[in-house]
Design a protein around this nucleic acid. Structure first.
Lengths: 227, 227
DNA sequence: ACCTGAACACCGTTCAAGT
DNA sequence: ACCTGAACACCGTTCAAGT
């Protein structure tokens, strides 16, 4: 096994995923990946046209892993929520992948599994087929935005975090009550981005799903009730 | 005027904003900014501790410009929507700034103006003061996520866009109907991220605001009616 | 035919040496 | 006292020259 020289595309993706998982913040690079594989960065360009293409493939792999053992449960809203939380967890501490995924989507098998589950959940909602693509699009835009934004915020360094908190404190607590009456009034209660974000994610998604539910025309209930 | 050697922080911010507005996608760099000013990049580090700090200051300036002539109109939901659309327009084609803003927020005067207007709008909604900070946070998280995500998606190059579209087409149109029945069924109707995003932004925000409105306790209507 | 060392054209940031 | 040229430690990507 030692001194191996040839690497399959699969092995490269695995190594990249591993490096992304274990390395700090934004420190992933093609050169470091090559070094971890004991080869030169130039040889990786035989497998991928660019760093983006490589990261896109890794992102799909992450999604695939997250979706592989996913079993839908509950009503359609619970299914969409569970799907979103899975994706969120998968990309949680991998801001670079979340950013790539957020910009280009992934477009592989992982992506297919996620698309399929979301579409199935929407079909189970009772929405007519004609209404589903627009709602699907809205949900995807929302989930991708929330996940990639959250990952970006979570990846700032402690120093950057402190700097941001300080700026926020100055902006809020130092606001002139004459010019900024509402801000001065709530200065001690408002929180900056990135603090206690967890709940916001689910609340925002729930509001979107509730809105879609309100648009469902009355009809026979779908199967799944207890009695 | 020619041959000037000293630059104020203000002038540097203006030059940076100008360079960001006119340069392509991700091509902004400290070195290019220094070159545009006719100086060396090292001299800029007297004014800013890091590139992030510089960009954060420029982002706040963008927000300040967008908010300076903003006059609130309509009911609280219209005010929040107008605010969100202003910010969206301001950061629209400046993905680097949107990314920095999305990660750290800006924390200057522009930020204050935006915070103030959002808080005032929420107060006008009839929500009790105690409920406002949590709703405020939800709205901020949502708007920042949508704007920075949209900017990121909009900044991909034409080649990357085509690559992404091709991946999406393969994933959707090539899906095996046995394994991916819903995806195969909707293959021609679903759209990838970044296509016709405009409507989704407003729909998602509207759903969130409707949800918040539903949480408002009954009370005397606020002023503003016609008759 | 396949692979890769070395190079190209960049980065952000620092600091010793200059004026 | 102030400024900055040159350097440090990196990037992603290409391609001629090697085996």
């Amino acid at each position: 096994m030692a001194g191996r020289r040839r690497w399959s595309t699969e092995e490269i993706l695995d190594a990249a995923a591993e490096l992304l998982r274990t390395s700090d913040a934004d420190s992933f690079s093609v050169r470091k990946l090559a070094a971890a594989l004991g080869t030169d960065s130039s040889s990786l360009y035989r497998h991928f046209r660019s760093k983006t293409e490589l990261l896109r493939a890794v992102a799909d792999r992450i999604l695939l892993t997250a979706m592989a053992d996913h079993r839908p449960e509950g009503d359609w809203k619970q299914r969409v929520t569970a799907l979103a939380l899975r994706a969120r967890e998968a990309f949680g501490q991998q801001p670079q992948l979340a950013a790539v995924w957020g910009r280009y989507a992934s477009g592989g098998t992982g992506s297919r599994l996620a698309m399929e589950e979301l579409l199935q959940a929407l079909r189970a909602s009772g929405l007519p087929d004609a209404e589903i693509p627009a709602r699907y699009h809205r949900i995807v835009v929302l989930i991708v935005a929330l996940i990639s934004s959250e990952a970006a915020v979570s990846s700032i360094t402690p120093e950057e975090y402190e700097q941001g908190m300080e700026l926020f404190r100055v902006a809020a607590l130092g606001a002139d009550p004459e010019r900024f009456p509402a801000l001065a009034h709530f200065a001690r209660d408002v929180r900056p981005l990135g603090v206690e974000r967890g709940a916001a994610f689910e609340e925002i998604l729930a509001a979107q799903l509730a809105q879609i539910e309100a648009e469902i025309p009355p009809g026979p209930p779908t199967a799944g009730g207890k009695g």
